[in-house]
Simulated assay, not measured.
Amino acid sequence: MRGAQVTDNAGIAQFITIFPGWYIGRTVHIHFKVHRDKATVLTAQMYFDESVIAAAHSVAPYNDHVGRDMTNATDYVYDPDSCAVVATLSGGQVAALTVGIPT
């Protein structure tokens, strides 16, 4: 699941996706890149609070898996400053993360 978005005049980009799964050795996260210009790229990750992860993983298809081997607390890359703010809307959830890019 890859994609590209262009920001609006306020510097906001948005995309629709599914909640990420997990893989061995990392906590749940979404990778992203921000291209300021052709030479300046920020590569980062967006994380989720453990309560959000637990809620998502309590329903299908996530609850078919045997479980995670890594939490935010045990992940070697996790940064709490990169944890998304999540709100429930009708039909799904919205996650927001503010990312600062040096100018």
Rank of each mutant, 00 (worst) to 15 (best):
V94T: 09
N63R: 09
I24H: 05
M46E: 14
T103E: 10
A56L: 03
V6S: 11
M46T: 03
V34E: 05
L42S: 02
I53K: 01
P20C: 00
A39V: 02
W22R: 15
L89M: 08
G91W: 10
D8W: 07
H29F: 02
T103S: 07
D79G: 08
Y23S: 11
P20T: 00
I101K: 12
H29C: 06
V59Q: 15
D69P: 14
G11C: 12
A13C: 02
S58I: 06
A95T: 01
F48V: 05
V6D: 10
A87H: 13
K38A: 10
I12Y: 01
P102C: 08
H35R: 13
R2Q: 07
A44Q: 15
K38M: 04
I12C: 02
H57F: 14
K38E: 12
L97R: 12
A44I: 02
S51T: 10
V52R: 11
G100N: 14
A10S: 11
F48K: 04
H31F: 15
C83S: 15
Q5W: 08
P20L: 00
P61F: 00
A60M: 01
V85D: 06
V28D: 06
V94Q: 13
Q45T: 11
R2C: 02
I16M: 11
W22S: 15
A39P: 01
L89E: 11
S90K: 14
R36I: 01
T7F: 02
A10N: 13
H31G: 15
D37C: 03
Y78Q: 08
A96M: 05
A54G: 13
D75F: 05
I101M: 13
T103H: 05
T71E: 08
S58Q: 12
R36S: 04
Q14G: 14
T71Y: 12
D69K: 06
A54M: 09
I30T: 05
G25M: 00
L89V: 09
L89W: 03
D49Y: 07
Y78R: 07
H65D: 06
D64M: 00
L42N: 03
I18N: 05
T7V: 10
A87P: 09
T103I: 01
A10I: 02
I53C: 00
D69F: 03
V28P: 04
G91A: 04
H31M: 14
G25T: 00
A55Y: 04
D81M: 09
L97W: 14
T98G: 10
V94G: 03
M1N: 13
I12Q: 05
N9I: 00
V41I: 12
S90H: 07
N9W: 09
Y78P: 14
T98K: 13
V6P: 11
A13Q: 08
E50Q: 08
R68G: 01
T74H: 03
H31P: 15
